[in-house]
Amino acid sequence: MIFLAKLGIGVLGTALVGGAALSSEGFIYVNVQEKHPGGTHVHVFVPAALVPTALHFVPRHNFADSAHDMRDALPIIDAAIPALNECPDGVLVEVKDPGEHVLVTKRGGSIIVDVNDPDETVHVSVPLIAAQSAIHQIAEARLMD
């Protein structure tokens, strides 16, 4: 009985520590809803800490073109993301016309993009720090080969 209790505490502790580590960088949330009848609804909620690990399993050649472009933009990204992280929350960009509404906001440590057009609604929330580390990983993909 004591052994089972110790095992339970161990499993619970590991789950808690693992959960805390996974959620330490926040969560990436993607929600796409097609508006036509029977339209697809995509709902993704992933711990941002998983992204660097997941990128390790993507074949490097898939990053070839984007890696080159991103390497050029790295100094700007490295300057922009920490500065944006320190900025107060608020709307950064809004584009509205009779058929479409696009909203880019900064909330907490995340950048959020909402698109509402006649065909679908899209909501994407990405933690800034996770985005920065993912971009670095993609940019350095070719260098690691």
């Binding site: 500065a83 900025c87 960009v93 809004e94 584009v95 016309d97 009779p98």
Partner: peptide, 12 residues
């Protein structure tokens, strides 16, 4: 009825 608004923190 189009609208574009951009709010850029100067520190950024």
């Amino acid at each position: 009825h189009e609208l574009v608004r951009v709010n850029v923190p100067l520190i950024l």
